[in-house]
Amino acid sequence: LQAFIKTLTGKTFTVEMEPSDTIENLKAKIQDKEGIPPDQQRLIFAGKQLEDGRTLSDYNIQKESTLHLVL
């Protein structure tokens, strides 16, 4: 599935991932794409901060969901 990552500066980019991917995997993909170390990334979806060990499906993240990236 493709999801949108929106930063506080208003920049939006897309990442490809599977519902079974962990938040940790997602942070690694963001690092590959944007060069931001995972330990500096905080991802917010539906008002909740996402925990590394959980999966996208745990948070009911669907295709074309928008996640907010806070540094």
Rank of each mutant, 00 (worst) to 15 (best):
L1G: 06
L1V: 13
Q2S: 10
Q2A: 08
A3G: 04
A3Y: 15
A3P: 06
A3Q: 05
A3S: 03
F4T: 14
F4M: 11
F4S: 08
F4K: 12
I5G: 02
I5S: 01
I5F: 03
K6R: 11
T7I: 09
L8Y: 13
L8M: 14
G10V: 03
K11T: 07
T12A: 07
T12Q: 08
T12S: 10
T14L: 12
V15F: 09
V15D: 00
E16Y: 13
E16S: 10
M17P: 01
E18S: 14
P19K: 08
P19R: 09
P19C: 06
S20I: 06
D21V: 03
D21Q: 07
T22C: 03
I23N: 01
I23M: 03
I23G: 00
I23K: 00
N25W: 09
N25M: 15
N25G: 08
N25E: 12
N25L: 13
L26T: 01
L26V: 06
L26Q: 01
K27Y: 02
K27M: 03
K27S: 00
K27Q: 02
A28L: 15
A28W: 12
A28H: 12
A28T: 10
K29N: 03
K29L: 10
I30C: 01
I30Q: 00
Q31W: 15
Q31G: 07
D32Q: 13
D32R: 12
K33W: 07
K33A: 11
K33Q: 13
P37I: 05
P38T: 14
P38I: 15
P38H: 12
D39M: 08
D39H: 12
Q40F: 09
Q41D: 01
R42H: 13
L43P: 00
I44R: 04
I44N: 05
I44M: 11
F45T: 02
F45L: 09
F45I: 05
A46I: 06
G47F: 04
G47M: 04
G47P: 01
K48S: 09
Q49L: 14
Q49D: 13
L50E: 01
L50M: 10
L50Q: 01
L50I: 04
E51F: 05
D52Q: 04
D52T: 06
G53R: 08
R54Y: 14
T55Y: 08
T55V: 08
T55W: 05
T55C: 05
T55E: 04
T55H: 06
L56N: 00
L56M: 08
L56C: 03
S57N: 09
S57M: 12
D58W: 13
D58K: 02
Y59Q: 03
I61E: 04
I61L: 08
K63L: 09
E64K: 08
E64L: 12
S65Y: 09
T66D: 04
T66W: 09
L67Q: 01
L67P: 03
L67K: 00
H68V: 12
H68M: 14
L69W: 01
V70L: 13
V70C: 07
V70Q: 09
L71M: 10
L71V: 12
